[in-house]
Nucleic acid binder design. Structure first.
Lengths: 110, 110
DNA sequence: CATATTCATTGTAATATTGCAATGAGATAA
DNA sequence: TTATCTCATTGCAATATTACAATGAATATG
């Protein structure tokens, strides 16, 4: 991100930015979509599905986990990931609070 | 963004990532929220409002304009910015297509 | 125990982002 | 014309992100 002056902004603005950053990479979107389709997956599935190295997938999973959008549970020798429903709903609301705030002005303004 | 293997992903995944990237900075969210509140603004308003340098604001405005989320029209000596309603609706739909795809599984999966 | 499997972590190189001073470009006013 | 105003662009330094090979840690299998 480079130098960011986080202290200039509200907590809400910083939180939304942080969540949006997770969506700001096609690999992470692909991971999310794979989870939407299959409910559950392990690191190895994604390595096979996306064609990225294991370390790279692992790193993306960590970022998804850090904002709480997914959760992982140890399943023997592997780790099973899935979407966190509560957090998912919260994030959807966070975005829609912004989206819904827009109302087209009466006359075109510019 | 660092090295990104865009060719590994679908056009939809790359588009959503690109749009999300615009939301992935608190300054740009602050700009959007200011526009939601005031409908219209010029560069100078934002410099005063956010406390960032004029060049920095100008750069953020360019990125917002590049994904089409805002549009600017020359207004004498200044440039008047506002939200692009059509594009706004499209972006909201793009996100909600992903958000709405989630349905909590019957039994907790992980 | 020894080996294999699965995933996380570390370290590193390549690239992208952020922020700003300085400068450029276009319009308006004196 | 000359000066001023507003904004975009350029160039730079500091920092962040991306991707992966190598290694480490934990569990399972023979």
């Amino acid at each position: 991100m480079g130098v960011t002056k986080a202290d200039l902004f509200t907590q809400e603005q910083n939180e939304l930015a942080q969540v949006a950053k997770v969506f700001a990479h096609p690999a992470r979107i692909a991971i999310i979509q794979y989870l939407l389709k299959c409910n559950t997956c392990i690191n190895g599935d994604l390595v096979h599905e996306l064609g990225l190295a294991q370390a790279t997938i692992s790193q993306h999973l960590r970022e998804l986990k850090q904002v709480g959008i997914i959760q992982g549970t140890i399943e023997g020798v592997s780790v099973s990931y899935c979407i966190n429903p509560v957090r998912w709903a919260h994030i959807q609301q966070l975005f829609n609070e912004v989206f819904d705030q827009f109302q087209a002005p009466d006359s075109s303004c510019c």
